[in-house]
């Protein structure tokens, strides 16, 4: 989109106005996230820029909120819980999800649409309804307030993402490769791990990352299904925001932003690699 040399004055004005408008919207998108980063280094217990910070006075900045995060036992317990729950849930949803995605991408699957609708449903149903249903049902069967219950709930929430990314990767999968492998004498299991898996691995990993972030970022379901023993990082942040608001939250938020930048980069790299790989495979 470039301004042609014959553009009228009106078009010129609109061209630049449009760019300014877009710039403002991008600012709206990104500024809130960027603002909290400097605020998290605030030396005071304030949520706004102190005069000292604006004057770039080094004394007005400090790492005290980060120190608090790494020394406060409540935050550390929450971090530990998050680190224990998210990988377990991810492992569960990735292993079951990949298997099912392979099954779903075969040419003859009875009731494919209905099965797909059921498997995708955790993504569609509003979280508060999932949380309510799980709370009622899990307390009936004694899973409410247990570690297992939270992991199962989070795995269920992560499964649609695994299914979607892995089936998307399998769409371009060349089935003659598995036939060739079978022809050369490999069993289905060996074919899966030696031929199919390396090719769909980018999809599996990015599905896994989605599942991980879903669990790691999830707060509604864990609020209901979990008990104090399963208090995760988002839960602790939620309490902090609702009750005793402390700038430590901003330090945690900054750390999470850094983590999400890292994840975003990983997913993007994987996507490119997947495209490159599939571009190489004959179609």
């Amino acid at each position: 989109m470039e301004l042609p040399p014959y553009a009228t004055t009106g078009e010129r004005i609109w061209f630049y106005t449009f760019r300014v408008i877009c710039g403002l919207i991008f600012f709206f998108l990104i500024a809130p996230i960027l603002t909290i980063i400097p605020l998290s280094f605030n030396a005071e217990n304030f949520f706004t820029f102190t005069p000292g910070m604006l004057a770039l006075d080094p004394d007005a900045y400090s790492m005290r909120h980060y120190e608090d995060f790494f020394t406060n036992s409540q935050w550390q317990t929450a971090l530990r819980n998050s680190i224990q729950i998210a990988p377990a849930a991810t492992l569960l949803s990735v292993s079951l999800g990949t298997l099912a995605a392979v099954g779903l991408s075969q040419s003859h699957v009875p009731a494919r649409r209905a099965i797909m609708a059921i498997l995708i449903s955790p993504m569609i149903v509003p979280l508060i309804i999932s949380a309510a249903g799980m709370y009622f049902f899990y307390s009936r069967i004694g899973l409410q307030g247990t570690w297992i219950g939270v992991v199962l709930a989070h795995a269920a929430l992560g499964i649609p993402f695994v299914i979607i990314t892995v089936t998307a990767t399998l769409v371009g999968f060349d089935n003659s490769l598995t036939r060739a492998s079978a022809n050369l004498g490999a069993g289905p299991v060996r074919t899966f791990f030696k031929v199919q898996m390396p090719l769909i691995l980018p999809g599996v990993i990015s599905g896994g990352l989605f599942a991980f972030i879903t669990s790691f970022d999830e707060v509604v379901v864990v609020l209901f299904v979990g008990s104090a023993g399963q208090k995760t990082l988002p839960w602790q942040m939620f309490i902090g925001l609702r009750e005793q608001i402390s700038p430590t939250i901003l330090a945690v938020a900054t750390i999470l932003v850094v983590i999400s930048i890292a994840l975003l980069t990983t997913v993007e790299l994987l996507r490119r690699r997947s495209e490159r790989l599939r571009g190489l495979s004959p179609s």
Binding site: I118, I129, S130, G133, A156
Partner: peptide, 23 residues
Amino acid sequence: ALGLIAPLLIFILVTFIAPIADM
């Protein structure tokens, strides 16, 4: 194909669909 899907389907039915039905 169904054999590959079955474990996940059962998992979702128990951990997710049953709670919704209960609600």
